[in-house]
Amino acid sequence: MPILEVDDIGVRFGGVRALDGLSFDVDKGQICALIGPNGAGKTTLFNVVSRLYKPTTGTVVFDGTDLLSVPADQIADLGIARTFQNLALVQGLSVLDNVKVGSHARSHGGFWSCALYFPQRAEEKRITAEAMEMLERIGLADLADHPCSALPFGTLKRIELARALASEPRLLMLDEPASGLTHQEVDELGDLIRTTTADLGITVLLVEHHMAMVMSLSEKVVVMDLGSKIAEGTPAEVRDDPMVISAYLGAPA
């Protein structure tokens, strides 16, 4: 049963068609990879689902909700979390606080309640404990109080993953989680994604250039080129598709 249905999505930037009639479904609990050469429109699709870009055509339905009628800051409330290719972390906060920002959507309390401190105390304690647990899971508990600036890129990527997981999402969108990681870290990250999402029943939409990771993790692969889908199927099916090979390596002369 599909949890995310992308139908005929088109996005234009001036004369450029970043996405052109893209359609695919992601089933509940599935790890679905979105691959394609640079500029294929993978991140653009993420930005459409996050409501950062407004598509010119098409619909996106998440678990029965029309996403295009939901403002960007309520996407997290629906249970969609994401990471960014170039990181979107809060430099001025500690590692732990960054993870706690992730739990914003499932915590409560505005200025009044926060100003009085006591109404928030129990929730704050719970969020802190959960964020610490998440950091331990991801192997960064030692850095909890470290400022988020001045950490290596690979570490920041994992912090962002923890931030996304802290919102307890139903759909997790990962934009190139393996880039900038060492080979060993990539393997660890793959295991982490597989076990964590299986444990928590999270559906994953993954954009990644690291093919070994894509092939070992995903149950479904959607291949894009120039804003449209050119192939879809299991990793094995996609790997042998002549369209895919020509998109990546160029058509034979």
Binding site: S50, A72, A76, D77, F84, L89, V101, H104
Partner: peptide
């Protein structure tokens, strides 16, 4: 520090 990060986190 990062309006996009804030927004996707539900702020």
């Amino acid at each position: 520090d990062n309006e996009t990060a804030a927004e996707v986190s539900g702020i």
